[in-house]
Nucleic acid binder design. Structure first.
Lengths: 127, 127
DNA sequence: GTAAAATACTTGCAAAACACAAGTGATACA
DNA sequence: TGTATCACTTGTGTTTTGCAAGTATTTTAC
């Protein structure tokens, strides 16, 4: 039973666990190539930061999937946990620099969807 | 038992089958939010066009998955079938305008992978 | 201080998707 | 004409997913 945590990781590049190929696209898809991960990152880019925020997004992510994806994103160094502003023990999530670097990816996907998928509406503001 | 074919579809935008939300990112991920579809599109952008080409890519896509994804991409209007140059009856695949429009998405993902994933090497040329 | 609500998960299970191997007809080619 | 290639399909176990329900902390209300 894996536990969700932001554990210490080597500061240097960890050896890639099991890649399908050295292609950067393939490696990127190993991290966020599924139907949910980029939606969590979208929410983070919109300023949402709490478990309940992700759950209440209109797509309705199952909570077990959300737990798993947050854990993977923490391991990948794309998000990190921070204490909530009230100083309580509950944690919020936010994008690391590596995660923020996905904004061009998000923007290109959003733009493609707006152009080619009928009846889509952008929730995200530019850039 | 679904058969792979490029059947007639309404020329106007078909009603979206079952979307999770009207978000363009969500809708885009409904089409290519998995670990294989964008790799097929990558190969198409590299000039590969035949079933065997996709199979022989280093990631090793299973043939049943490839059949399924090609069928979905045809349905989505992202790829089309064309006769091979030799004039035989075998078909090749190529990107439609809608598919070509994914180049900025591919480029942003590749750039992110090159920057943030260690030991990745670009196979694709710029643009 | 205690009860109730909210939060952040985990667990269990059926259904779907996936990976892998093995076919199957059609071409292409010698 | 025979062999190899191609573009699939089928069958099989395994993994992942979706959904409901449960649990253990935290906050909030009183």
């Amino acid at each position: 039973m894996p536990k969700a945590q932001a554990s210490k990781r080597p500061l240097k590049a960890p050896p890639p666990p099991s890649r399908r190929s050295p292609c950067p696209v393939s490696c990127a898809l190993d991290l966020f190539g599924d139907r949910w991960t980029l939606l969590i990152i979208r929410d983070l880019m919109l300023g949402r930061s709490r478990f309940k925020d992700f759950v209440s997004s209109p797509e309705g992510i199952p909570t077990n999937i959300l737990s798993d994806r947050l854990e993977r994103l923490l391991e990948a160094g794309i998000v990190r946990q921070i204490p909530t502003t009230e100083g309580g023990k509950r944690m919020a999530y936010e994008l690391t620099e590596k995660g923020e670097a996905l904004r061009p990816v998000m923007k290109s996907i959003r733009d493609w969807g707006l152009t080619w998928e009928p009846d889509t509406k952008a929730v995200m503001q530019q850039s």
